[in-house]
Design a protein around this nucleic acid. Structure first.
Lengths: 261, 261
DNA sequence: CGCTTAAGTGAACACCGTTAGCAAACACTG
DNA sequence: CAGTGTTTGCTAACGGTGTTCACTTAAGCG
């Protein structure tokens, strides 16, 4: 009885035995249904019994594939990070490689658009860590999260090397902040020599602003006061890009932005 | 059989009959235990049966006081908004009335400090609306939220009248954004004639930044990368106050900030 | 004091996660 | 092909949850 790892086990050589293939398919079906229940009923509405019912089997059977409900949620969270990373990377790749400004705008807008069209998913990814075992294995989710961030980091790196905006001098930052920023650049695996503490500081500030405006829109904490948050987002985007020395251009009008998840 | 409203019913005249008094006390006990379970086990760990057990009664009995678990959560959420509003207002009142700069800094820091020392509460208040009936009666929570915001609005109003910072001209803002901002100032009950759309814009931007940095700290989405978020918060505070024409001054060192809820 | 009404209980229903033991299907080896 | 070990899924069961209903008890009021 081998412990069921919840991630997709990459078989050496890529050849999967018949058994492994059907196993992968079942696991994929479980996660697909879980994901669907997540968007339909919210995170509290994801249950092993309901998934099993829909699959025509019983709940204990799922334990052959997943060690428990918490691990399943962590697993689909990791999947969602990868999906988001793909979406952002695609938006980035959809612009001409030299057009750093356009790539940045496209990436950031892709992030927001994915967020507001995937509210439930965004909530479990970027909201409070409710209902997740503190000792759950979230390494895969963290890894996907890192990959998601790397798209932005790379673009930011280009801005720094192109000297688009004035960097705050490291000496101007308080020592406590500099220490945190150093650990930041270290963990991120950012090897560019141009990433000074000042640059890390700017990057973090931008991320906080983006995170704030998107969270506010998804969590609807201004919805009693602001109906359509898009103008506000674009305005924030404009502010941010101005600070980064990026040329802002308004978005192409896309039909059907109002789609509620 | 009267429907049990979950909020504290203010009796006309303030005189409560004995029956009403003990009823209020029981309701208060229910909410007190619910709150304790919330901080101890998270929002998923709040259950009517557990509360009843601790009170020495059975779960159905609680239905005399509360229409259901969701309504109970909404009720304590409203309480928490009021508590947070009090805390911020106290911090504000703790500074000399003329010292607008100090009052603002104190209020913002009080907000963050309450947030990081009340993670569970903050999560249900400002996180995604998980586990809350869409049709639940959240008017009391909204009202308390409004009162919470008003402290900041009032201080901001002073900054505007004192002309601390240059206001963006209304004409520079796109029409779609202006419309949202108008609805904002309207809903907020902000009657000051100085609150132009540009001013509302600056206020909103600041709130988004504050919300972002505090959410990020409480939800711990940078914790694999930044240990102590306080320097980052102070840095953001410095940036924000600079834009507002507020004189920044570093915080007084408080012992025991590290206290984990 | 008697009557009305509120408070609380027990049983029941329908869910949930999770464990243990068992039977059938499967894959593989001699 | 037969035999064997593994994988898969089931049933039963335990303890937990929210919620409804019928009922008894207790308190307050006229």
């Amino acid at each position: 009885m081998t412990k069921p790892p919840v991630g997709s086990d990459q078989r050496t050589g890529g050849t999967l035995s018949r058994r492994e293939r059907v196993r992968e398919a079942t696991l994929a079906e479980i996660k697909e249904i879980a994901r669907r229940h997540l968007v339909e009923f919210g995170v509290a509405g994801v249950s092993l019994r309901a998934i099993a019912r829909e699959m025509g089997m019983t709940a204990p059977g799922l334990y052959r594939y997943v060690p428990g409900i918490d691990a399943l949620l962590v697993a689909i969270t990791a999947d969602m990070y990868e999906e988001l990373a793909d979406v952002v990377a695609e938006a980035d790749a959809g612009m001409p490689a030299e057009d750093t400004d356009g790539r940045i705008l496209a990436s950031l807008r892709a992030f927001r658009y994915w967020a507001i069209t995937h509210r439930a998913e965004f909530s479990v990814m970027f909201g409070p860590r409710t209902r997740l075992d503190p000792d759950a294995d979230i390494t895969r989710a963290l890894e996907a999260g890192r990959r998601f961030g790397s798209t932005f980091f790379t673009l930011f790196d280009r801005l720094v090397t192109e000297e688009r905006f004035p960097l705050p001098a490291d000496e101007d930052l308080p020592e406590s902040l500099r220490r945190e920023l150093r650990s930041f650049t270290g963990t991120i695996g950012f090897t560019s020599p141009d990433i000074t503490e000042g640059a890390a500081m700017v990057l973090t500030t931008c991320w906080v602003r983006l995170y704030g405006v998107v969270c506010m829109e998804v969590f609807q904490h201004l919805n009693f006061v602001v109906g359509d948050m898009e103008p506000l987002f674009e305005s924030e985007l404009q502010n941010m890009t101005k600070d980064l020395g990026v040329r802002y251009s308004p978005p192409l009008r896309v039909a059907g932005v109002q789609g509620s998840s």
